[in-house]
Design a binder for these strands. Structure first.
Length: 159
DNA sequence: GCCAACGTTGGC
DNA sequence: GCCAACGTTGGC
């Protein structure tokens, strides 16, 4: 088993908040609907069960880190790509050669306090190069360094 | 293979 | 609701 890795995953709280995940059965949800090849490749080639997840609320007031989760499954074909009734349906994806992947994500810890995007930007130091604070960064799943992981946890009131 | 048009993301 | 950023599409 390779070393544990860390990720930031964006969700719009109006659609599915960290609290929704906390209340979900087994605190777990299927992270589906990814339609970006870079993110797909992360899921396929890099992510591993047990990796840490910073659960980020985008399109929110305020935006920021709402909780800590983990990757709870290996990647597998995203079922929504084959469902014509689903908003994420992709008619070009063939069942024997799925184009899009999903993973299971499980809530692990609530933060003692929400960490806003402004705080992440102002913190500097280990967070100075964090992807999510860069303007125009639209990746819905992005890698986080161990130093960033620790700093965000501390800001959120966790050890 | 270039690149303009278009659609989406997401902070503000 | 505006618009910058940027990925994707499609004409050529």
């Amino acid at each position: 088993m390779a070393k544990r890795q860390y990720w930031l995953m964006k969700s719009e709280p109006d659609v599915f908040s960290f609290d929704d995940l906390w209340k979900a059965k087994k605190r777990t949800t299927l992270w589906d609907g990814v339609r970006n090849y870079q993110v797909r490749n992360f899921m396929r080639d890099v992510m591993q069960v047990g990796d840490g997840v910073l659960y980020y609320h985008s399109n929110a007031k305020p935006a920021g880190i709402a909780g800590v989760a983990e990757i709870a499954s290996a990647s597998y074909p995203d079922p929504t790509q084959f469902d014509p009734a689903d908003a994420h349906y992709d008619p070009r994806s063939e069942p024997d050669e799925p184009r899009w992947l999903a993973v299971d994500v499980r809530a692990v810890e609530k933060l003692a306090r929400f960490v806003t995007l402004d705080e992440l930007k102002e913190h500097g130091g280990p967070l100075a190069d964090m992807g999510v604070i860069r303007r125009g960064n639209r990746l819905s799943v992005q890698p986080v360094t161990a130093a960033e992981w620790r700093a965000v946890r501390r800001l959120g009131g966790l050890k």
